[in-house]
Design a protein around this nucleic acid. Structure first.
Lengths: 344, 344
DNA sequence: AGGGTCGCTGTTATCGCAAACACTCAGGAA
DNA sequence: TTCCTGAGTGTTTGCGATAACAGCGACCCT
């Protein structure tokens, strides 16, 4: 006998099946259906088979809202991010999503209209209101730190790319090591020193690359020129590149990302300075196109996918109750192409 | 009097406040609290003020799972997508997310390990199991169509970039128009005909660009060369570009995206063919770096953000009960830079 | 005075599921 | 036999919110 619920017209499209419907069809109680789905070993195989057959026949799907209500777990994790059209954040997000998919988690995203403490807090709140099990913050900016200082208690949070003084676990590429590697590569080619075109102020990655570059120069006792500051865009690379091109001293430039490096390459060429004969250029990121720049760009590859996976793993640990701080550093890799050569 | 729930130790961190707690503090019933939050005009201003004060004092946040359970609405929409590291999909996703944020929707994403019917269906199922209010599919591939043929009834679905024969509303850039515009631009510069390096087979955008290119050539009675097929990467553009560079006939190339165009530019240069003096090149997308290619790339700009917004709007309409098909076409724009010039 | 209507608030039932506990029955130990 | 044990299943309850309806003054109308 099929109950017709009050207000339900049997002629209309039938409601989606619920656990009780499955139970009835299989001749068991709803609880047994629940067990088949959540702890199959506790149900006798024959019963289990009957239930599963009923599940298939009715195309039953558990209602996650009901399950969340009673268990407190949603199987959804949140990602707070800034601009997902930038190569780095987009790749990280992709890595997180893939790792999450493999563990049957779903990812909700909250993008921010601006990078500051208030918006980050709002983003986390927005996600929390949807009962996410945890949050990964991809906002590689100093202001993220403030936003992570007082988090709602009980919400697992992991940061990507953040500094070392954060009160939450962090997964990141070792920016400083990558920058140092790039700088040493240039020095090893005989350049007296290396100029730097950095990312915008207060971006963690930008700071890390400046630090690595500076320490590599200082370690060798080289002069440390004042870094120039861009905004990650090819446009800014071009504008600042024009200035650098006018300085005959400048024979080696470490640029904080590939897109800016592209602008620099163009500015140098327009100024008649050959790369790498007159000036060597190194980028950062290794975007897929970097090998097709003119000339092909020597750069530092970041494995964003791996960072995403590590961040997800840290979050899982946290959700499972792990305490304390944790850092997962991913090592970047120098990729030497044709934009670097011996000092003229 | 504050009830201590069974199993609760008053010394521990207190549970998050629920509606009943707010009601008690404000001296009203839970129902009144609910009304203050969902239909404030139905509550006397003084009462409302007391309730809101209690909400703030307890930092009360509604439990969305409970609300979903009873209303059937989650305030979450799902996006099914393939590779969010590609510029187009990433930008579209970003547009959707921004539009959603402005309307207090949250976005969950389900990325696909491969583009085919089965995975698309799975992605939609994964989202559906989280009670999303609707789904936007960003999978510009023929196989998406099959995946959209038999959808679960009752789930609003909108497609981005799909063909005209889909059973769901579609928001898209008019690829064909953009390609035709690019082709006509080249013809107007005096080129006898225009070669085409297309995207991979069965990608909707790739097909649309081929169609637009072909029709523009045919409209002027020009010879239509066999299109060459790439895979969107700069690498493939370079490899195929080397072949094109060997053909002296080739004076104008319409490339299906900017990254491949970058590879083509490099191949031409290496072969000693000057751009635009010997060969003109047009791309598609207008990635932010296109203006800094060497030479700066003439290309067709797609407003992905707008597409995302339109798709979101279509989905809102659908959720609100709108029926029937609908298409929102966004017009692309030709951006002329220095990679195109008069026929040699 | 009697009886609406209206504005505001409270009571009860319900959404779909799982935790906790209760029950049944077979098989083995005492 | 009697009791115990434990595997397998059922019953009850409650998660936190909203829908539907009921109650109750105040006010107006006739």
């Amino acid at each position: 006998m099929t109950k017709v619920r009050p207000g339900e017209n049997p002629a209309e499209r039938p409601r989606a099946a619920v656990m009780e419907d499955v139970a009835e069809l299989a001749g068991v109680s709803a609880m047994t259906v629940s067990r088949v789905l959540n702890a199959p070993e506790k149900v006798r195989p024959e019963t289990r088979a009957r239930v599963l057959a009923a599940v298939r026949e009715l195309d039953y799907r558990p209602n996650s809202a009901a399950r969340v209500l009673v268990t407190g777990r949603s199987g959804v994790l949140g990602v707070v991010c800034f601009d997902t059209t930038l190569y780095g954040p987009a790749s990280t997000l992709f890595g997180i999503e893939q790792a999450a998919r493999d563990s049957d988690y779903l990812v909700s995203i909250a993008s921010l209209p601006a990078l500051n403490r208030r918006w980050i807090t709002r983003g986390i709140d927005r996600l929390r209101s949807q009962s996410v099990d945890g949050v990964i913050v991809v906002a590689p900016h100093e202001s993220a730190a403030e936003g992570l200082r007082n988090l709602p208690p009980g919400l697992p949070v992991v940061d990507v790319g953040g500094g070392s003084d954060l009160p939450v676990p962090v997964a990141a590429v070792d920016q400083s090591a990558g920058a140092a590697r790039a700088t040493r590569h240039l020095l090893s080619l005989g350049h007296r020193t290396v100029w730097h075109l950095s990312g915008p102020p207060n971006w963690i990655d930008a700071n890390g690359r400046v630090a690595g570059w500076r320490s590599a120069l200082e370690a060798e006792g080289r002069e440390v020129p004042e870094p120039l500051v861009g905004d990650w865009t090819a446009h800014s690379g071009y504008e600042i590149g024009k200035r650098l091109a006018r300085e005959p001293d400048v024979t080696a430039i470490f640029v904080a990302n590939d897109h800016m490096a592209m602008g620099v390459l163009r500015a140098l060429r327009e100024a008649g300075r050959r790369v790498p004969e007159d000036v060597s250029v190194v980028g950062f990121d290794d975007v897929p196109e970097a090998a097709y720049f003119w000339p092909p760009l020597t750069t530092v590859r970041q494995n964003f996918g791996e960072v995403g996976r590590q961040a997800f793993q840290l979050l899982l640990d946290r959700i499972a109750g792990a305490e304390g701080e944790a850092r997962r550093m991913v090592e970047p890799e120098l990729v030497v192409r044709e934009s670097t050569g011996v000092s003229p």
